[in-house]
Design a protein around this nucleic acid. Sequence first.
DNA 1: ACGAATATTCGATATTTTCGAATTTGTTCA
DNA 2: TGAACAAATTCGAAAATATCGAATATTCGT
Lengths: 262, 262
Amino acid sequence: MVNKNGKTEKSSRIQSVERALIILDVLASKSEGMSLAQISEEIGLPKSTVHGLITTLRDYDYVSQSNETGNYKLGIHLFELGSKVQRAFNIRDAAMPVMKKLNKQFGETVHLGAEDNGEVLYLEKIAADSIFSIMSDVGIRLPMHCSGLGKVLLANKSEAEVKRVISQRGLPALTKRTITTQAKLKEELQRVKKRGYALDDGEIMEGLRCVGAPVRDESGKVLYAISVSGLVKDMYGKRLDEVINATIQAADEISIALKKRG
Amino acid sequence: MVNKNGKTEKSSRIQSVERALIILDVLASKSEGMSLAQISEEIGLPKSTVHGLITTLRDYDYVSQSNETGNYKLGIHLFELGSKVQRAFNIRDAAMPVMKKLNKQFGETVHLGAEDNGEVLYLEKIAADSIFSIMSDVGIRLPMHCSGLGKVLLANKSEAEVKRVISQRGLPALTKRTITTQAKLKEELQRVKKRGYALDDGEIMEGLRCVGAPVRDESGKVLYAISVSGLVKDMYGKRLDEVINATIQAADEISIALKKRG
DNA sequence: ACGAATATTCGATATTTTCGAATTTGTTCA
DNA sequence: TGAACAAATTCGAAAATATCGAATATTCGT
């Protein structure tokens, strides 16, 4: 089946459901909320059509409607469902205590992430004591080739898989230190694999340094990674070595905890 | 418009969207996942109908399908959307640092909650150091009349609103200490209001004691509450007094932080 | 109280969903 | 290896339901 744009598409999708989900995604991109007219404009459907869809979403609390402005936002029920999904990652219970210890030890930000669809998905975050908040948050996605988490996860994939990710996502430069050629990335990933940890040195944000280490599931596959992130001025020399050792050790602890519960 | 059950319903809802959302709710209740046949049975629709709906949900990652069992579960995209919703509570950034301090001070579990639809919705949790994990989690709902958070939130509502909640939710007994009469609850809420904090003494779970204190938004309304929960054996006498004072102080700190940002 | 801007309802039309039956896929056990 | 079963998936006809633009109602600002 071929549509008017010439794209092949599965015919078994339900149009109205598809449209409702698109509305949620559109709303997700505008945290301040949108009016009915804006949504209708954005997705190119008549207001009355959007109205029917969004009324349904509202009635089920997937969308909330501000009673001052009448604007629509993502609703509280998504928060509840999202929490259920997060709880379903059984990595979480194993990882959190260890991550807390790591955070306490150095006072830096600790992350837990996994690969999803060629990107790093941030599953948990323990923020640094300092006010300084880094550009990450639970639920956020970042490219794999420039973060400590991502490089660790990539380094433990087959060459074919790495190629697939690159062809899907490219190697965008977030800073001038970001690795942007396939050859250099390959080299870096080999280094990561050999050393057992990844170092992101301002590749995602100038002035930010980050150590990532692999977490293995029961079967030994690297599905997750943890990282410690801090300012370059706090992450160098002897202290950096300490962070590296502690991060690797913490990751191993989590792997062992995962193995224990099978 | 009146349907066959005699219930009045808005006619403008989109049937297929409604059904898709019901599927998500059904899946949310079974964390281990469900087969197509099970879902179809549960909601009483033909398998082929459910298949169309769930395929759409799957294609947008609202649902994931295990490739071993073929079972359907809630998908990763709900986690992402849920995180966005959570981030939109601007209470979070103000509350977390203070909650962490409180957790560090006593080593007990700290919660942040809000009222939603006559129940306490848990927005954040910092778990105790100990392995002992309490029956709470982010995204969970509990009754208002028997938790520290809930009683604080109720105590700051009008009598009419309290009545409405009771008529909607009743006063179910979770333990033998739970308050189950309207008169006793009224008395208790007056006490809570006067003292400025709520004490849950095994009303939600035997052996668990919990101190709740109100958080005020910019306009002075009590929209949120925080609590510290621990075992009765750790929460009595002088230490309980310390916890109470610290919890109230922490709640005030959060209120002030909220006021500052307007 | 008026006008403008927005949300909501209406009703005819036909596209799309729906449903049960038929088919395919996958798994278990001989 | 293959037969028998159980599950998911596809099919196609029938019509119910979503869709759309126009009409109406509501809200807001001045």
